[in-house]
């Protein structure tokens, strides 16, 4: 009986299928999130999401430049990292107009910087009834202005043949309305807008810019929030999280993805990392 077309196609397909062993060995070395030999600057590396991000990136082979307020806390982060080529670089995020020169100098001293993650930020629960200029300025400066100033330095004299990646840490507070958290929410919403503008402006520099928007994550910042309200009020916040509150590593993994070459065609997005909070 003559062979039918389907049988012929099947035979041809089987001939083309590579050796199974070869496939398996190549998949073992396949790491789409690899940051091997890439240098990444992380602000807010002393604790929380910043610390977890450094740990994850170090496991992926990155060389980290750790920035934060406390040398002692940065040293604790450093001790948790894989690899031994990391650098601690303290610098005051309040010195907005000095930040870009600082970043440019880091690149000069330590080689091209592939990625920048902005985890530095402050959150103070404060009603608009207590609003003042100083509170607004400090929140906006630390949360947003410093990110933009660092981005300014990040793009200076970059090798444009290598795609760079910036990930800013926003918050679901920038996507919803929270009483008592207006200024923080505004700074994080502004960050989402800045992500889009920066992404478009830095196209010519071959730099992608994205942000993540975490919900409540188990960090010192969350602990402070817990302490600033009654247990019942805090429980109400937890109850709004369909999958419970997150861990810093959950956000770090998302950041690592957006930084990596796996996300080379993902640009100007805000990625909520919140266990379904926004759908609830």
């Amino acid at each position: 009986m003559p062979e039918n077309k389907l049988d012929t196609m099947l035979k041809e397909t089987l001939k083309e299928t590579p050796d199974k062993n070869a496939l398996m060995s190549s998949s073992h070395s396949f790491n789409p999130l690899s940051m091997s030999n890439q240098t990444v600057l992380v602000t807010g590396a002393s604790a929380g999401i910043g610390r977890a991000t450094c740990i994850v990136l170090s496991k992926l082979g990155a060389k980290l430049i750790l920035n934060g307020r406390s040398e002692e806390s940065l040293a604790q982060t450093l001790a948790l990292l894989d690899g031994n080529e990391h650098i601690v670089a303290t610098f005051d995020m309040q010195k907005t107009d000095e930040l870009s020169a600082w970043v440019a100098q880091l690149a000069k001293s330590h080689g091209p910087i592939k990625g920048f993650v902005h985890c530095a930020g402050i959150q103070v629960t404060k009603s608009v009834r207590a609003f003042d200029q100083a509170f607004f300025d400090q929140t906006m400066q630390t949360n947003l202005a410093s990110a933009l100033a660092i981005a300014k330095g990040f793009r200076i004299k970059r090798d444009k043949s290598v795609q760079g990646s910036i990930v800013l840490v926003s918050s679901i507070a920038g996507l919803i309305g929270q009483p008592g958290n207006v200024v923080y929410g505004a700074s994080k919403a502004a960050m989402i807008g800045a992500t889009r503008g920066l992404a478009m402006e830095l196209l010519r520099d071959n730099v992608r810019v994205n942000c993540v928007a975490p919900a409540l994550v188990e960090t010192q910042m969350a602990e402070k929030t817990r302490n600033s309200m009654t247990p019942a009020q805090f429980q109400h916040i937890i109850d709004q999280h369909p999958m419970g509150i997150g861990e810093p590593e959950d956000v770090a993994n998302a950041i690592a993805f957006l930084l990596s070459d796996s996300a080379r065609w993902i640009n100007a997005v805000c990625l909520p990392v919140e266990g379904g909070y926004l759908a609830n």
Partner: peptide
């Protein structure tokens, strides 16, 4: 609750006092 938060924030700023949730 917002007035409450404002007083807590004021105590924190003026006296560096962190008030535990259970106390509230």
């Amino acid at each position: 609750s917002l007035a409450f938060l404002s007083v807590i924030a004021m105590a924190d700023e003026e006296f560096d006092v962190v008030i535990q949730g259970e106390q509230l």
